[in-house]
Write a protein that binds this DNA or RNA. Structure first.
Lengths: 201, 201
DNA sequence: TGATTTATAGCACGAACGTTCGTTTTTAGT
DNA sequence: ACTAAAAACGAACGTTCGTGCTATAAATCA
């Protein structure tokens, strides 16, 4: 890895941390350059435009998400156990990833959903990836015979995502201490409703 | 209503519409003054600071929410029917309220959850109000004998809120056409699990 | 080591930011 | 209609925004 890639990576690390607190649209070149200990123009040269930088930050966040949430969950056996692992990893993934704030992708989703452009596209693609990944895990649970064969996969993913979103809001805005417990309870209720009859009869 | 209050109200109307698209922190005095057809300084004088303006916008949004979601739902009879009415009103309330974008309070929740100060306090108070209101409606459903007496009210509100959040994300970011149908399905599954046994045996 | 590419810094730009101030216009009360 | 009060304006402040240029410093390679 050349020197350029190295500092670029360092910048993205700082940027992700900052974005988790102030959002992707709240990221400014000047503030980021200060954090990274370099000049505005020097930092700027790595991306060419602010928009490119924002997209790079989102990509970085996505990769960090995979490393923190998805990859470790693969150690749990396919099926409901793995879905549960994804949930528990997900709902405090920014803490695990040592980010000082909340999920940058989620914040960006709220910031850019009404502002068409490349950044919005990147956010949508990123979150769609997450849903696709979830859907695969659900399908595995069906194949494993733990969820009913006629389970509406997209509906399951939809409700699962709702649990994630409200848990994050509970943690970050309301500082609810028992948000993750509520998330688990909601999850158990969800899988109970979609469970294959043979599994827990 | 004096002239001052009148224009202030007009400003807040424009501000709410703008905030629904660019967020509360994306609101700038200059852009808002343009939309409102007046000078920066003239507009500024109505609030004294940007922070005060942001808080005023959030309050305006909250009131609009009550008028659009809560008040109409009171026409539905207490119990599950009213809860369902709240849900259906909620998940497209910005359309009903003629706002061009998404829910400003929700956007602000993601923008300010990691930035302490009066604005964050206002957001937290506003959303807490929503949850309190929901909790009351749930308690009425219990009293009406439609939900089990041992229903965990806060857990119910938690899961209900999750449905709302994921539905809004589905509508605004993913442009899912069937998001509201999924929301209703999730709601029916929720009330089925918490339903009093006598109600639908 | 010397040559060359690459990375960073410095500086300046026009625009927009929130805010202050003094003046002018408009409203409200008599 | 005249006056006192309220409201809106226009200009300017200092700062930060994103983005260009040009020069210097550092890393890469022969």
């Amino acid at each position: 890895m050349g020197k350029g890639e190295e500092t670029r990576q360092g910048i993205l690390d700082e940027a992700l941390a900052l974005a988790s607190q102030v959002g992707v649209s709240g990221l400014s070149i000047g503030a980021l350059a200060d954090k990274a200990g370099m000049s505005k123009s020097g930092l700027f040269a790595h991306f060419g435009s602010k928009e490119e930088m924002q997209i790079a930050v989102l990509r970085e966040g996505q990769q960090r998400f995979v490393d923190t949430v998805v990859r470790p969950a693969l150690k749990s056996p396919r099926g409901i156990a793995r879905l549960r692992a994804i949930l528990t990893n997900w709902i405090d993934w920014t803490r695990r990833a040592k980010l000082p704030g909340g999920c940058p992708m989620n914040a960006a989703a709220n910031e850019f959903d009404d502002q068409p452009g490349p950044v919005r596209d990147a956010v949508e693609a990123g979150l769609a990836d997450g849903r696709r990944l979830l859907a695969n895990a659900v399908r595995m649970a069906i194949e494993a015979g733990e969820l009913r064969p006629d389970t509406d996969v997209d509906q399951f993913v939809f409700e699962f995502s709702g649990i994630v979103l409200v848990t994050m809001q509970g943690q970050r805005l309301f500082r609810e201490k028992d948000a993750s417990q509520r998330a688990l309870d909601a999850f158990e209720r969800l899988v109970r409703d979609y469970a294959a009859p043979s599994a827990n009869a």
